[in-house]
Design a protein around this nucleic acid. Structure first.
Lengths: 168, 168
DNA sequence: TCCAAACCCTTGGATGTCCTAGTATATTGC
DNA sequence: GCAATATACTAGGACATCCAAGGGTTTGGA
């Protein structure tokens, strides 16, 4: 990790925006930039915690999703929709998880176009261990105050709904 | 864009966490996941707005940073620190910006190890145009309520300080 | 019935990020 | 003054994401 900067670079950017006459959008710009940076920090922590398992966050998310599916299996397009990533990203993740023996591809019983992703026993075990570590090493010490967590869930939930992620 | 899901997948994940006895970390897990997804949505919007300029967000950020520097030039290591990305990412961005004629590399006058990145006239013009478009197409319609923007800046600011981004 | 349109997955290419290692230049300490 | 250490940038590799395009399967309307 680098030494902390003496000043918050995002607050500086906000001031620059204001100084240049874009005061009306300086705050949203700062908020958006802060989200970018926060995501980067969180992702680094998560990947660090998952490294011992040979998992990345993308692969872990897929594993976790499968572990919550009743049958431990999901069609790839369903996984793509629920994880909200491009289908090719799922293909990529499944390729690697399959090579690691954590999931298996199997044909859909009635639709020849569809491929099912199925958790192996090993995959289920690893998902459980990885989740435990993420919970204790990352989520339980997220660095957000409890009240702020609730705020974030509400604010970002509104945002995601507005962006068309879900209707609910 | 895909059709909205009938249910919020992150809220579902939170319920799954609670159902499995991890209720104490379900909320932070949901908040972290929501930040990931929000970042993805915002990045897609930004890149869409920048595409006509042949810029990506990474390159735009560097261009914008340079345009706010007094002399229009910065050492690469300084840019890396302020943008809070790995030095190799800056090298990558500068390679492409230089190829596009938007910046120039020049040797540091006193330190032979250091390379200065300097905006060209064309780079400065493009940065200005791109900023105008980002302001009107993205930041001015961020999808966050004004009050929520302030909350985000405060919450994420606290988080980033806690993560060691800056001391201030 | 049958062909066009829709859908599903994969391949190949472009970008970005990080890490590790290597080269060159500065700085420090003896 | 010189060797050891620190700093700055770049090269190569692993991953992830998206887009565009291609091949196989279903569906639906003429």
């Amino acid at each position: 990790m680098n030494a902390p900067l003496p000043r918050d670079p995002i607050a500086d950017a906000q001031r620059n925006w204001e100084r240049h006459g874009w005061g009306d959008v300086a705050a949203p710009m700062a908020a958006v930039t802060a989200i970018m940076r926060t995501q980067q920090i969180l992702l680094a922590r998560i990947e660090g915690a998952l490294k011992p398992f040979g998992l990345t966050f993308a692969r872990y998310e897929l594993l976790a999703l499968l572990s919550f599916a009743r049958s431990g299996a999901l069609p790839m397009n369903k996984a793509s929709a629920l994880l909200q990533v491009h289908p090719t990203s799922v293909t990529n993740a499944v390729d690697r998880l399959e090579k690691a023996g954590l999931v298996v591809r199997s044909p859909h019983p009635t639709d020849g176009r569809t491929t099912l992703i199925e958790l192996t026993a090993e995959g289920r075990t690893l998902a459980k261990s990885a989740t435990a570590v993420l919970n204790t090493e990352v989520f339980s010490q997220s660095g957000f105050a409890d009240r702020d967590v609730d705020q974030l869930i509400r604010i970002l939930g509104d945002f995601r709904r507005g962006a068309g992620d879900f209707s609910e």
